[in-house]
């Protein structure tokens, strides 16, 4: 199983936005991670930290003023250099199913949900014929918990929760090997969050070849669905951890991750002081230093990412196997 190649392999991905007047926004910097077959990776972090830009880069949906570096491989295909025709015809919807952040904007406002479902079924599957399309669209709706008696509504007649489920249903239709969900549970109540992420999980578990990259600020949803967690801060991945260790014991190692969990209403409910830095004006050293209670002079230098953490003073690593220096004790 460890021999199987990852579904998605992100290798040093960076995205810069060039603004008029020569300003540069460092939206994503040197992101590195894999998503294995059968795995759910949750990407978490504060609003504006670059999560959605990373997703747009994978889909080739960045605006014209964006520059990318590094690679992002879906099998042999480098998503960063693939041409728009390839991305449009073979990637989006077929090899990557996208569950977008604002479903209302993703759905076409002037058409009913039913006609959009049927069109997507016809585009991405072999189903043909009016009755068969109708049945397939209703099945797709039910699969994502969208009530079939609402299929004849237009997007603006749906509550936020229902719009999200319509978008989820559309994304699942193509049975893509990589599901990319950008804030799939925003605006949903806890029951629906659970059911939405469980459905995504089921999709991944169904044949063990699929993978899910879920971008979310909902830490409870991340805990429920993820095998591993990637924490992003100011455009960089600062921690990559096993989900059980991260949410349970021993907990996160990066001071930022610890602050995020402490902000939860069932934990300390205390915010991290201050706000994230501007991505157009990042400090040379650790971008979290201004908010960090462990910061020292060392933190004026950029902490390198070790593969699991980028911090000069992280909390101790979980110790499953004794480290070499423990032998002398």
């Amino acid at each position: 199983m460890t021999e199987r190649p990852p579904v998605l392999s992100v290798r040093g991905l960076s995205v810069r936005f060039l603004l008029p007047g020569g300003r540069r926004i460092a939206a994503v910097t040197d992101a590195r991670f894999d998503v294995a077959p059968g795995e759910c990776l949750a990407l978490i972090g504060e609003s504006g930290c670059g999560k959605s830009v990373l997703a747009s880069a994978l889909l080739g949906l960045l605006p014209a003023n964006a520059q990318t570096a590094g690679g992002a491989f879906l099998g042999d295909l480098d998503l960063l250099t693939a041409d728009e025709r390839t991305l449009a015809r073979t990637v989006r919807g077929r090899r990557i199913g996208l569950i977008p952040q604002s479903p209302a904007a993703h759905l076409t406002p002037v058409r009913t949900v039913r006609s959009q479902m049927e069109e997507t079924v016809a585009q991405l599957t072999g189903v043909r014929g009016r009755t068969a399309l109708r049945t397939a669209a209703e099945r797709a709706a039910r699969r994502a918990g969208f009530p079939p008696d609402h299929l004849d509504r237009h997007p603006h007649e749906l509550s936020g929760g229902l719009a999200q489920r319509a978008a989820t249903a559309l994304a699942l239709i193509g049975d893509a090997p990589l599901l990319l969900a950008d804030e799939p549970t925003t605006g949903l109540d806890r029951d629906l969050v659970d059911r939405t992420v469980d459905e995504l999980r089921r999709h991944v578990d169904a044949d063990g070849d699929r993978a899910l990259l879920m971008i979310t600020h909902d830490l409870a949803a991340a805990e429920r669905v993820a095998d591993r967690v990637a924490v992003m801060y100011a455009g960089r991945i600062v921690e990559l951890a096993d989900a059980k260790a991260f949410f349970g014991a021993p907990g996160p190692r990066h001071p930022y991750s610890r602050g995020l969990l402490d902000a939860l209403p069932d934990r300390a409910f205390t915010p991290i002081p201050g706000m994230p830095p501007e991505l157009g004006d990042l400090p040379d050293g650790c971008a979290f230093a201004a908010r960090c209670d462990r910061a020292t002079d060392a933190c004026t230098a950029l902490p390198p990412f070790t593969g699991s953490i980028a911090c000069h003073h992280p909390a101790p690593a979980p110790a499953p196997a004794p480290a070499p220096e423990d032998i002398r004790a």
């Binding site: 972090g45 609003s47 915010p271």
Partner: peptide
């Protein structure tokens, strides 16, 4: 509902 945990705690 749209906000991360830290911004939520701050605005509450």
């Amino acid at each position: 509902a749209m906000l991360d945990a830290s911004t939520t705690a701050a605005l509450v």
